[in-house]
């Protein structure tokens, strides 16, 4: 699959002991003969453990953990947008531009971010700090406009607030 990118580090991905404990917890959620159900949560975990994205090696590793053919894991990883198949910045900034946010001027939020970060949608900063993306409705429409940075939502935004939020990121 052409979308898949090899890791550049050359170090084969391995879960830490703590991550392996989490894998065991994940498996317990599904019937014993339905381990494939764990593929999504294990991919989410792998993305967290391996620097925010999933290289082909990482997908192969998940395949061995879950006991699925690698091709099936590739299929899943490419279907869902939350699995990043190329490196992303330390802060993945995702701006909702769907209807409710657009009505509340998400255009100005997107513009403020482009100016502040000097990035277009889909680009990452060269220092690896930021990736800027456009996303579909994130389910926070009554607090539009909004964006997500990694695991957290930032809502009821204004261009000034956006700038502050970026400045305050550690």
């Amino acid at each position: 699959m052409s979308e898949l990118q090899k890791s550049s580090s050359g170090v084969p991905p391995r879960f830490s002991e703590e991550a392996m404990r989490q894998v065991e917890v994940i498996f317990q959620r599904y019937p014993a003969d339905r381990r494939e159900s764990a593929v999504m949560p294990v991919l989410h975990l792998a993305q967290r453990e391996f620097g925010g994205w999933l290289s082909q090696e990482a997908l192969d590793y998940v395949a061995t953990i879950v006991g699925m053919p690698p091709i099936r894991v590739y299929e899943v990883a490419t279907f869902y947008t939350m699995y990043n198949l190329k490196p992303v910045g330390k802060y993945h900034i995702q701006v909702c531009t769907n209807i409710s946010c657009w009505l509340c001027d998400s255009d100005s939020i997107a513009q403020a971010l482009r100016n502040k970060l000097q990035l277009s949608f889909g680009e990452s900063s060269s220092d690896g700090r930021f990736t800027l993306s456009e996303v579909e409705c994130l389910g926070a429409c009554i607090n539009a406009p909004m964006l997500q940075i990694n695991d957290d939502y930032y809502e009821n935004l204004t261009p000034a607030k956006v700038s502050e939020i970026i400045d305050q990121l550690p």
Binding site: I99, E136, G139
Partner: peptide, 11 residues
């Protein structure tokens, strides 16, 4: 899954 644009009640 709450994904239909405009919908944010289940959250």
């Amino acid at each position: 899954d709450e994904g239909e644009p405009g919908t944010c009640k289940d959250r």
